[in-house]
Design a protein around this nucleic acid. Structure first.
Lengths: 217, 217
DNA sequence: CAATACATTAAACGACCGTTTAGTCCGCTG
DNA sequence: CAGCGGACTAAACGGTCGTTTAATGTATTG
């Protein structure tokens, strides 16, 4: 029976981890053969253990979900406005998971959508707390603001990856460090000082929405 | 000699346009056979006219470059802070080009980098003009701010596409309309009113950079 | 020890890919 | 009209892909 669970897990888990890192580094188009090679096994064994490439990806998705809920890194917009994945990026051990997450969002899978929604509700909670405490300005549409901030954070990272040197080995930790070095200042500037000196555009848009600005004149 | 230029262009151009739309809709992994079918020709003819799939893509890249410089839609962050491609999205005829551009940025090709850099310098110019006119607040790092704004604009669109319903026929005009409907208000709010009520974070970061805030106390 | 179960592999299968080949058709030239 | 060149196609080639098959080794079980 399921005695030598060490061997069992070692085989399956090694393939799963190999899939995780290669999916993360090369995208989901990577071949089963490449994953097998990374794990040091034959391509056939990959299918034997997981049934198909799609099911292997599903197992990876579930594994990442689990890691995230376990480590509570769901608190992902975290307690500074510097981005979203930086919390996780501090821990070397999650480097592989990090790449997989970004690929998932980039490729528009089920997991990607799920993670994005998690980040949105997380950001929403964090922003609401800040508004209560008086450190963050209230918004007319708090949920949309949270969604916009999350989309901007992740999106700017995606662009940074896409526009960085060819493809050759993307180091996600380095990407996040670059993001911080490049964008931290303008982001903080924008968040504390704003961009526009006049409120004519906002007021005009609010009027357009049928929500006239400050009727109290 | 090169007499019947109408036939020549019709054949080649039909394949090029078919490639443009299919590359845009399905990504650059789409098969030569699918492109040939869309153009109503045989797969062999595609290679006959363009030499290889990669060269076909290069021709598409060049074509898009040309369209952009022709229509001056390089002015792409345009004269409101609502995004970047909205200018172009108004013209039905550029729908195909629009999808191709977004795919290019998403996939990190040469053209994508080039377009992003164009948007950055464009945004920089627009922001500088605004600062001169007094409508836009000055920045300590104008180039980085422009880059950050451009990355956020494009990036949030990429995320919107990735997290929208499965894949089934992405309508980029619709995506841009959705972007505006969803994010216009929080973006304008942020741009005119900021996010934070205190400047402690910014000041702390400036201090960290060795650029102490407001020495004039 | 014989039997069973399963991890594991090498090899092959069939599908699809980009591309090549060999040929047909057709309009132009001389 | 003969001949030539290029647009165009059907078919095939070689490669890679995900997956299947058949076989081997090995450890556990009765």
């Amino acid at each position: 029976m399921r005695s030598a669970s060490r061997d069992d897990l070692n085989a399956r888990a090694r393939i799963r981890d190999a899939a995780l890192t290669r999916f993360g580094k090369d995208g989901f188009g990577v071949s089963v053969r490449a994953i097998a090679e990374e794990a040091g096994v034959s391509p056939g064994l990959v299918i034997h253990h997981f049934g198909s490439k799609d099911k292997l990806r599903a197992v990876c998705d579930e594994h990442v979900r689990q890691v995230i809920t376990d480590t509570k890194t769901a608190s992902v917009v975290s307690h500074d406005p510097q981005g979203f994945l930086h919390t996780m990026s501090r821990y070397e051990e999650y480097a592989g998971v990090l790449g997989y997450i970004i690929r998932s969002i980039q490729s528009g899978g089920e997991l990607g959508r799920h993670l994005f929604e998690m980040m949105v509700v997380d950001a929403e909670g964090y922003l609401a707390r800040g508004v209560e405490e008086g450190t963050i300005r209230p918004s007319r549409e708090p949920e949309k603001r949270a969604r916009w901030l999350a989309a901007n954070s992740i999106g700017s990272i995606l662009v940074l990856i896409s526009t960085s040197r060819p493809d050759a080995e993307i180091d996600f930790q380095r990407v996040l460090r670059d993001w911080q070095r490049e964008y931290m200042l303008p982001a903080l500037e924008m968040f504390t000082e704003g961009l526009l000196t006049e409120r004519t555009m906002l007021d005009a848009y609010l009027l357009y929405l049928g929500d006239p600005p400050e009727e109290s004149h």
